[in-house]
Design a protein around this nucleic acid. Structure first.
Lengths: 203, 203
DNA sequence: TCAGTTCAGCATCGATCGATGCGGAAAAGG
DNA sequence: CCTTTTCCGCATCGATCGATGCTGAACTGA
């Protein structure tokens, strides 16, 4: 028989919830960026000591990576749901709608962690900057592959370049994220997305 | 007769070129952001001592404000030239073309200072963050007023909302700036801009 | 030449950065 | 109970943060 029951570690159990602490850290990174978020601010928001943070998450960069993963599966989960839409227009519409909702939700920091987390950094933040650039590019790649499938299915005209269309949709999404970070109204952003989608597929 | 000759100050003259030092500082802020750019990095690139920097520019925040002014009149000067285009389509086309050129020029940092200079900051950078948000909003306002004039002139259909169209163009421009910061190819961005402009006026 | 003024190199300020070591407290197994 | 293991508050590390004072050098006008 397999040993299915997870090994209960001996010793004093952890005194805080890892998921909740990570959620708190995510929000700090989201609002203040990777370099702007200090360890003191992070641990203060997480409600734990620096010792607990380092023993649990490694270091600041590892904490950010885990926070980004949580962001992808939480606030940014609309992206993968959007890719399941039956039509390419539905995909694009869901991406822009999800972007607007996530970047302007009143109880969240405004903007997108993947954009404002580390867009320009010093040398010490270069690794995280590259990580987010890859994160954005991965998003674009996923959309491109979905659009390529739409072309194969006849859902998009054969002359449409899926890569270009994916780059266009993500560009608008990132632009929306910048506007949202400045506090632009949600309905105004919705009107922009509608105007773009009204010309679908634009190419 | 007016005293037209400028007062020559007595004492030892300044040993460096203020414009060139500011240009160097601008490039550091452009690449590393306001909070990422340390005084040591700034003065090192400017080739002056911290004493000279403080006596000449005030402090780090004032230095950034002056660098932003220089950015507006230099790399971002295409914006005001674009507003002088005879048609609204010409304005939008010039804005997007200028954005692409400035944010992807090989000898410049990639991206837009107004976007990546301080998109998410700690509390200490909040003033600069707000400054850049206002800078972006001012840009949008200038474009809106230009489009409103185009509506009055019959250059744009009367049902077009100038504010919405201006927000759309600037949103695409900011999105392009984000993509450029990630290293996206210039021609790909041009293709995106062309696709947008092909549907003009989109609303 | 001299007095007056400014520049800028050097040292350093207190605060904060990310990160770590120590040691008592707490909770498990035996 | 006792031993073992882990957690975590506290103090602190060297480095760096933005910012300033001191002081001799440099250059002016008289």
């Amino acid at each position: 028989m397999m040993e299915t029951e997870q090994r209960r570690p001996t010793g004093r159990p952890r005194g805080f919830d890892v998921d909740e602490a990570l959620e708190r850290a995510l929000r700090v990174f989201w609002e203040q960026g990777y370099e702007g978020a200090s360890l003191a601010t992070l641990t203060g928001a997480m409600g734990i000591s620096t010792t607990s943070m380092y023993s649990t998450f490694g270091n600041k960069e590892e904490l950010f990576r885990k926070a980004l993963d949580r962001y992808s599966e939480g606030p940014s989960a609309y992206l993968h749901r959007a890719l399941d839409e039956p039509t390419a227009l539905g995909v694009a519409s869901a991406i822009l709608a999800g972007t607007i909702l996530t970047t302007t939700r009143p109880d969240n920091p405004h903007g997108c962690l993947g954009v404002q987390g580390a867009l320009a950094t010093s040398d010490s933040g270069r690794q995280v900057r590259d990580l987010l650039a890859a994160w954005r590019d991965d998003t674009c790649t996923l959309v491109r592959e979905r659009f390529a499938r739409a072309v194969d299915d006849g859902d998009l005209p054969p002359e449409v370049d899926p890569g270009l269309l994916a780059r266009l949709v993500t560009t608008v999404a990132y632009g929306i994220a910048v506007q949202a970070a400045s506090g632009v109204d949600q309905e105004e952003l919705r009107a922009i997305a509608d105007a773009i989608l009204r010309q679908w597929p634009l190419l």
